[in-house]
Amino acid sequence: MAVVSMLSPKPNAVQDQAPVQISLRGVRKYFGSSGFVAVDGIDIDIPQGQFFVIVGPSGCGKTTLLRMLAGLEGISEGTMTISRSDPSRPENSMVFQGDSLFPWMTVYDNAAYGLRMRGVAEKDVADSVKLWLERIGLWRFRDRYPNQLSGGMRQRVSIVRAFANDPEILLMDEPFSALDEQNKMLLHEELLRIWEATKKTVVFITHSVDEAVTLGDRIMIMTANPGREKAIIDVPFTRPRNVLELRHDPAYGDLVFHIWEQLRDEVQRARLNSEGGK
């Protein structure tokens, strides 16, 4: 396992002591009769409370990996161990890429979905939904339907839907990829703000290096097709982070550059693969 440590990372003391929450050993995924290998031998340990980011070129199997963690895809080989600290809470909740809010439910009902499916008493549902919608500034839009919201607001509601469910692990699949830069920046701030209040374990998928460095504690770079681990990088920035000021830090640019260097070959390889395939 290539662990690249640069810029003398200051590992978070809490994380070093934190027990491992997600442990993957030799996890592979191939699809059906074609034998297409999407994910090829992933070994990682993600401690409790860590913001873990996976970055890689399109089609590198990162979404497949996340869907396996979410239980939406089976694992072909290897083991996936998830340690639970509180079995009464759900194991994971996912924030999906693109529009995943139910168009037939109001903002409130969408946010309450996970809790209601678990049979939580309606009074407790109301408390939790109100708390989260207020935290993200959407309480006054609670009676709106998704088609009456902007794209950024819709993504905030799907983040609330996952947080309100109070899972041990949050899985996020490129949740901001469809948003413009300015909206993205605001949502990074909001995500960090509410995440820092709960310190849940997060596995976050992105193809944006900036996003990875801004949000993550640790970043895994994946190779293209089949998806393997290329490098794991610790992000040295302390919490709480200021999304804007972070970019002022020379270490930020160095880190982004360093990751890009590793990623560039993979992106090129992915492109060659897809062109060769045609």
């Binding site: 979410a70 939406l72 759900p90 994971n92 999906f96 693109g98 979905y113 499916m117 678990r118 469910n165």
Partner: peptide, 16 residues
């Protein structure tokens, strides 16, 4: 299909 994924991820039963 994404709505069914959401239902599945939030552990909705078949009836739900």
């Amino acid at each position: 299909k994404i709505y069914l994924d959401v239902g599945h991820n939030f552990r909705a039963s078949r009836w739900q």
